[in-house]
């Protein structure tokens, strides 16, 4: 079995959501190492290990918000899925938007899943657990 922690990259500009997600992950009791960046530019720097992220780990899973300043989630998604060495990273779009056009567009950009953030805390926690559960215990991920 894999002894290293699972690496999760959360791309989220809202600190409230960052904290909520962190709290939810804590409750999950999984061995997870979560990194957080607040916009698309930082996310790509993290993935390409540029600047302050030279030592950044390669994430096993990305949780990507859509609406962000500077470079939004759609652009980040398009770049990742166009890059041969990054496109293997599973990307779960986690957003407040329920708009049909967002859902269609992100899947067309090869997002691996589209999840709408529920308003209710209990549901939110349940969803974060479910995501972790699915990606880290059910699914077999590609080796690093």
């Amino acid at each position: 079995m894999n002894v290293r922690p699972f690496e999760v990259l959360l791309v989220e500009d809202n600190p409230g959501d960052v904290l909520l997600t962190t709290e939810a992950l804590e409750e999950a009791k999984l061995h997870i190492n979560m990194s957080v960046v607040s916009d698309g530019v930082e996310a790509l720097a993290f993935l390409y290990r540029r600047g302050p992220y030279a030592e950044a780990p390669r994430p096993d899973l990305m949780l990507l918000d859509l609406n962000m300043p500077r470079k939004d989630g759609r652009e980040v998604l398009a770049e990742i899925k166009a890059a041969p060495d990054l496109r293997g990273i599973p990307v779960v779009v986690l957003t407040t938007s329920r708009a049909e056009q967002d859902i269609v567009r992100t899947y067309n950009l090869h997002a691996n899943a589209y999840v709408t953030k529920p308003v209710d805390l209990e549901q939110f926690i349940a969803i974060v657990h479910a995501i972790n559960q699915f990606w880290f215990t059910i699914v077999t991920l590609p080796p690093h």
Partner: peptide, 17 residues
């Protein structure tokens, strides 16, 4: 309005929890 409301709601629930 959903977005800020979600924040209020989530953190109050977190407090309660």
């Amino acid at each position: 309005l959903q977005e800020p409301l979600r924040m209020i709601s989530s953190y109050i629930q977190l407090l309660q929890r």
